[in-house]
Amino acid sequence: MTVLHGDVAWWWPYVFIVLAGWLPTDVWRWAGVALGGRLDETSRWMVLVRCVATALVAAVIGNLVVYPQGPLGDLPVALRIGALAAGFAAYLLAGKRMIAGILTAEAALFAGVLLSGA
């Protein structure tokens, strides 16, 4: 039984979102305002914080591509990874332009489906 699919009170998902989502997120924003300008952004401690936070979001990216929900999951995993890699290469080649990366990744995904004859 989970928060989403179990037999729980209608308000429980909202309490879950507030306590496990809103509070742990906005607390960092408030800390940022409180510290604003007084924190040395180049300190080692901040580098460590950025590394862990970045790696965690990167793990989210990896899971979204390898274990997606819904129709994206019906496509071959190699195609999903390959399309993101192609988009990443295009993004770097285009001088870190997001639009180039996103268009290439999407084009590669569609091309892969058409070529594999779905």
Binding site: P24, W28, G32, L35, V49, A53, T54, L56
Partner: peptide
């Protein structure tokens, strides 16, 4: 841990 990145 995901949201720490917002602080900097």
């Amino acid at each position: 841990l995901t949201s720490v990145r917002l602080m900097p």
